[in-house]
Design a protein around this nucleic acid. Structure first.
Lengths: 158, 158
DNA sequence: CTTGGTGCAAACATTTTGCAGCACA
DNA sequence: TGTGCTGCAAAATGTTTGCACCAAG
């Protein structure tokens, strides 16, 4: 059930100013499907926005617990799927054991620099990659709908 | 326990001619670690080579079963880890439910075209991507150790 | 012979689902 | 006030592990 997609701006840093619009997008998407905007869903989205980057379901659960609004695992997973289906977040896989997610809008891009020493992950936007991607697809008579690039890095002197 | 890495040629298609060298690489890597080259391990590697591309643990199990040499799930998973640790195969993640793997040597590249309609996956090599990747890393004072690109595509007329 | 390997089944971790009661629209 | 939502606990899925027996070197 793909809900209402939203245009993905990819230069803006996630800031408080996007909380309101994103909430609104979510409410609208829910309403259009006859679904309800519950406090749990609102809290989950707020918490995700506050992450300002990549997160795991587990971290989200912990963060909610710390805030005093503990939400059940089931609801968190259900809401993640919902947010994904309306393109507010997207799943990112680079680790078999855990699904990672990031905000679609306000995320800095779909290229990940994964430091294989420290485990740190940085997201960034690479406009050239979109050109390259589209060129590859065009050459095959296909149309690119999205992409994910993961670069595994280590300190330069390693 | 990273075993003996092998140089990754990436233009060659996997063909029968690489079976012998790869087996040899595997045997040598095992011997260096004091591990044994068992019939199960040999069959698993042969079956992987015959796949000529991407595969899942499940497919591998089925293929082995069909061949009449049924190998246990446990052994398959253990061998996959072993093959990964000596760089004969590498894990590819683009689906939460299942780990995919591909041959390192003889695989056509680490760019995946994933058809979101049919589920078909094609691997290819994109040399420009390596330049781009290295440029990005250099700009940040990091060193790229590897990368994975997934492009989600659909038919051009969609 | 000695050490590591295999198969089985049980254990695991993450995610999903069924259900009874609760709450938004 | 009715449908959808929540939490719980149980199920499901893919992968890992413990163990007793087996086999490569």
């Amino acid at each position: 059930m793909p809900l209402e997609p939203i245009k993905a701006g990819n230069d803006a840093q996630p800031t408080l100013e996007i909380i309101e619009p994103l909430c609104a997008v979510f409410r609208r998407a829910l309403k259009e499907e006859g679904l309800k905007y519950t406090p749990e869903r609102a809290m989950i989205l707020d918490t995700i926005i506050a992450f300002d980057g990549l997160f795991e379901a587990d971290q989200l659960l912990d963060a909610l617990k710390e805030k005093g609004h503990s939400v059940s695992k089931a609801t968190v997973y259900r809401t993640l799927k919902l947010l994904e289906s309306c393109n507010i977040i997207q799943q990112v896989l680079f680790d078999r054991d855990q699904s990672h997610y990031q905000l679609t809008v306000g995320s800095t891009g779909n290229t990940l620099l994964i430091n294989i020493d420290s485990g740190e992950v940085e997201t960034l936007a690479v406009p050239e990659l979109i050109e390259l991607r589209d060129k590859i697809c065009a050459a095959k008579g296909l149309k690119a709908q999205g992409h994910k690039l993961q670069i595994f890095v280590s300190a330069s002197d390693a």
